[in-house]
Nucleic acid binder design. Structure first.
Lengths: 163, 163
DNA sequence: GTGTAATCAGGAACACCTTGCAATTGGAGT
DNA sequence: ACTCCAATTGCAAGGTGTTCCTGATTACAC
């Protein structure tokens, strides 16, 4: 499994609460699970699985498996910003939708509703409900866009419309 | 390198033309290169690198390296639809922007301008120029969305009561 | 406590992609 | 046609995830 779009969200505010929620779902509390939950609470933003492997001294497979289990039960989630490793976080922390600049790597976190006009437009025109919580909106940020006239030269012929 | 956003596009209509363009860029025509170009012309849509490896009997690294070289020189491109392997194609074939349904895998190819209103909105509000040619717009298609009322409720205002 | 069964961790293997290096080869110049 | 040298390939290994299997743990009933 790579992503759990339809799971009820479990927003918890401390490790014990997460552990209770976990048990309520019929899951057990293993050492790896406890360490992961504590680390996610301690983190101040989404972190890579690799980071957790190294800082917690756990097996890779255990980390990925548990992140997936927790995600399937609504406790955690992960986001992909372009290429590169996925970043994992607790549900309810640093949530929203992401803009990612593929030139400089800048990440902009938007509130959950800020892209609603975009979502509405896409749904009305194409019947597709977009979600940028799992895959970021990839593009070029303001600084990078204005800093590279060469880009305009190359991409211009796609649609020559006055910006 | 993972992506070449700023390369002048080289749209060619037959293998020989691609080969001339390639030589004009100072590249050599190796067997692997020729086979790849021919296969991309023969394909009727974006294909995975793995598919090329198998059908052409080439080394993996050679395929990936050459797809990257060709992309850096504006002859090919690739797109990511959610998780799963990237899909490679000639520049000028099946181009546009993609909607990808993460439930059923359905892919919708939009014309190059169809998401301009969305792009404009995002640029005006967030100073970010979005490009959905490399990463698809991931979400839920009409069929899958209506089949799962739970999802529709969650998408607009995310509040959950037990179900 | 002890027993039991389902869950879980460790490890290897695999999928996708990238990188480093030695050996090979394309093709320009002669 | 031959030489030569950089471009290119093959091979091996690494990085990010995912999956499978088997032995160890956990939770729970006694």
């Amino acid at each position: 499994m790579t992503n759990a779009p339809d799971v009820p969200r479990l927003v918890v505010t401390e490790p014990d609460e997460a552990i209770r929620a976990l048990r309520a779902s019929g899951l057990r509390l293993s050492t790896a699970r406890r360490l992961l939950i504590e680390a996610l609470f301690a983190a101040d933003g989404p972190v890579s699985a690799q980071h957790l492997v190294q800082t917690l001294g756990l097996e890779e497979s255990s980390v990925y498996r548990n992140l997936e289990v927790l995600e399937r039960h609504g406790l955690t989630r992960h986001v992909h910003l372009g290429h590169g490793p996925g970043l994992y976080a607790l549900v309810g922390r640093d949530e929203g939708e992401y803009l990612y600049c593929e030139r400089c790597g800048k990440v902009t976190l938007l509130g959950p509703d800020e892209l609603d006009p975009v979502r509405d437009h896409i749904r009305e025109h194409f019947g597709h409900t977009a979600r940028f919580t799992h895959f970021a909106v990839v593009g070029v940020c303001q600084g990078c866009g204005s800093a590279t006239p060469a880009a305009a030269a190359g991409a211009t012929h796609r649609h020559h419309h006055g910006h």
